[in-house]
């Protein structure tokens, strides 16, 4: 049962991810990405990590991708025929994508030998155990990453700040 579900979800997530980059229309890409995220959330549920699954859905499918859709719709980027990119950009994209793949494969090589922290406990994904672990054993990385997020937020606000007249113009558009 679990194995069947795993394979179904895995196929859905891989096909969805391919469809994200294959789709011509960016709105379709976003919708395929939503499907992919749901399949991944399903994998988390299979691993008994309900909290991770639901947070994944809320944050990615519920907030970030809605924002993506919002921006795509507002800027009217839903053209079927996007202009063809110059060859140079294509070459650069292929090379950098290949390099990323190489890095990932190299990083994953020999990962079998490293003992994973705490996976022996199947109840780890439950919110109580997860919270306790985050605030005791892993408190330093947890706090550091939250500071990083805060810094990113401040940066985004600074970049996004505009003069008063610009703001009024944007609001008048809606």
């Amino acid at each position: 049962m679990t194995a069947t579900l795993f394979y179904i979800l895995a196929i859905v997530s891989v096909v969805g991810a391919i469809a994200v980059i294959a789709a011509r229309n960016p709105v379709y890409s976003v919708l395929c990405l939503v499907v992919t995220f749901f399949a991944i959330a399903g994998q988390y549920v299979l691993l008994n990590a309900q909290f991770l699954a639901i947070v994944h859905v809320i944050v990615y499918a519920g907030a970030i991708l809605v924002l993506f859709l919002f921006v795509l719709m507002m800027l009217n980027l839903n053209r079927e025929s996007e202009p063809l990119q110059p060859t140079l950009i294509k070459v650069i994209a292929v090379v950098s994508g290949g390099m990323l793949l190489l890095t990932l494969v190299a990083a994953l090589r020999g990962v079998d030998q490293i003992p994973l922290a705490g996976v022996q406990d199947t109840q780890l994904g439950l919110v109580k155990n997860l919270g306790r672990l985050l605030f005791t054993e892993y408190v330093a990385p947890f706090e550091i990453s939250s500071i990083l997020f805060l810094a990113a937020m401040v940066g985004a606000v600074t970049i996004g700040m505009r003069s008063k007249s610009d703001k009024r113009e944007i609001i008048n558009h809606l």
Partner: peptide, 25 residues
């Protein structure tokens, strides 16, 4: 009686907007 019930509610509320956005677009 899900362990994370209240988050489940928030999750479904947050994806509810897709119906409207997809329909409207």
């Amino acid at each position: 009686d899900v362990d994370i019930g209240i988050l489940y509610v928030v999750g479904f509320v947050s994806i509810g907007v897709y119906g409207i956005m997809i329909g409207g677009w």
